[in-house]
Design a protein around this nucleic acid. Sequence first.
DNA 1: ATTCTTGCAAAGCCTTTGCAACTGC
DNA 2: GCAGTTGCAAAGGCTTTGCAAGAAT
Lengths: 162, 162
Amino acid sequence: MTFPAIEVSQTPESKFREYLATRPKPQRFTDQQRDLVKYIFSRHTHFDADQLLEDLKIAQLNISRATVYRTLSKLVDAGLLRRIELNGRMCYEHDYGYPQHDHLVCESCHKMIEFLTPELDEMLRQVSAQHQFQMTGHTLIIRGTCIECNRARGAKRKLDRI
Amino acid sequence: MTFPAIEVSQTPESKFREYLATRPKPQRFTDQQRDLVKYIFSRHTHFDADQLLEDLKIAQLNISRATVYRTLSKLVDAGLLRRIELNGRMCYEHDYGYPQHDHLVCESCHKMIEFLTPELDEMLRQVSAQHQFQMTGHTLIIRGTCIECNRARGAKRKLDRI
DNA sequence: ATTCTTGCAAAGCCTTTGCAACTGC
DNA sequence: GCAGTTGCAAAGGCTTTGCAAGAAT
């Protein structure tokens, strides 16, 4: 993990069960949902629906595409996952037990680097206030090239010159 | 316009022609492209491909969907338009002759409000430097409710209580 | 004359949805 | 047993693309 986890009193599974039970229309907790929550919270990565589906297959967990999409939505609603829009597709990351942060995204290797910015919140609040805007959330992504890809590129340029 | 325009020495059309001529493989400047550039720069709005297509129809300019998409891409490459990803679709706005800024997006009426933040650039630079990250651009969107929608909502709540 | 662009329709990509079978409570 | 969930395949929304006809240089 990039940052120390936040202390939480419940497991992701119990938090999810609580969410399901608490909805206006109570929802059920199924085997597929249990497996998904367990799998997703067994590692700290950014992933999209497709990657997750592949990884689940490798892990011998047979859960259909439709169920994966439906469960991801519920997990976002439940506050267990955060959704990030990136290059026209949805990316997910842990929300529960993990501090709010933003991302540097490498356009070469697509790595996501997390960063914390206490000043940013203050800035967002000020801007919103100036426009009498009721902020509910924000998205900040810094695009560019990570240090590894930059080095690789530099090395390649050197080779090209020989 | 929300902000004063930047002084530019060329018209959007001539800048585009220059871009087309300067590419490794020179590209042609067609009637459809001319009409599109003229139309797009005749007003300062945020728009997506679909809205543009509708507006073009109203303006009696018959340009096919494919050509609109293809030309929008070229205009982005040429530095005439900026592309903003929003709710799974692409939005466009003037780049040439207009200062770099970020957006507040109302989730109720989908209005986009532009704002300038000198401090932000410094912050982004610092974060990038800390991670030895070569920044090429960023996206910052503040989501929430604009003042008009907030008022409307308040009014509705009042009515509901009667 | 050559090569690039257009317009059409078809395909692509990611995500959502209708429906019959199934399952948690 | 009833209401909500699954899996499948089909549909949806937006964008891209193959190809023949047309236009720019």
